[in-house]
């Protein structure tokens, strides 16, 4: 009887370690994602014909434009003057070939995107991309 009781007390260490690893990996992965904050409220327009990107230049600056036309970088809201200041600083630091990705909500009017594009254009950065959700196979 007593022996049986002792046996039940043994904790399964092996699976515990697995769970701990699981947690560690979870936090590592979320930490990496956080570096590249994505505005989840934005629903990108769909692109059926182009391939999804597999590699991104680490210098890429992603500008989010919400449906209402609010602009943010990494969820930090900005007005166009602030945006231009940030981009000018980026250009000074990393040169004018820094890729700029505009993640505009598909339902926002183009006028909002245009404002951002003009701000980018004024800073002299020329590699501008519009982000879209790749829904097709990307056959060219």
């Amino acid at each position: 009887m007593r022996r049986r009781f002792d046996e039940t007390l043994e904790t399964p260490i092996a699976s515990l370690i697995d769970v701990v690893f699981l947690l560690i990996i979870f936090f590592v992965v979320t930490a990496v994602v956080e570096k590249d904050v994505v505005d989840e409220s934005i629903r990108l327009a769909q692109a059926k014909h182009v391939a999804a990107i597999d590699q991104k230049d680490p210098r890429t600056v992603t500008i989010n434009v919400t449906e209402k036309g609010d602009v943010n970088i990494a969820l930090q809201p900005l007005n166009l003057t602030q945006l231009q200041q940030i981009l000018t600083a980026t250009r000074k630091q990393s040169g004018d070939s820094v890729p700029i990705v505009i993640r505009g909500d598909g339902r926002t009017v183009y006028g909002h995107i245009d404002g951002v594009m003009q701000a980018v254009g004024r800073t002299g950065l020329y590699r501008v991309r519009l982000a879209a959700e790749a829904t097709g196979r990307g056959d060219q």
Binding site: L44, A52, I53, V101, R129, A131, A134, G138
Partner: peptide, 10 residues
């Protein structure tokens, strides 16, 4: 989440 980037010239 497959994002495609469309390069445009300003």
């Amino acid at each position: 989440l497959s994002e495609a980037h469309l390069a445009v010239n300003l």
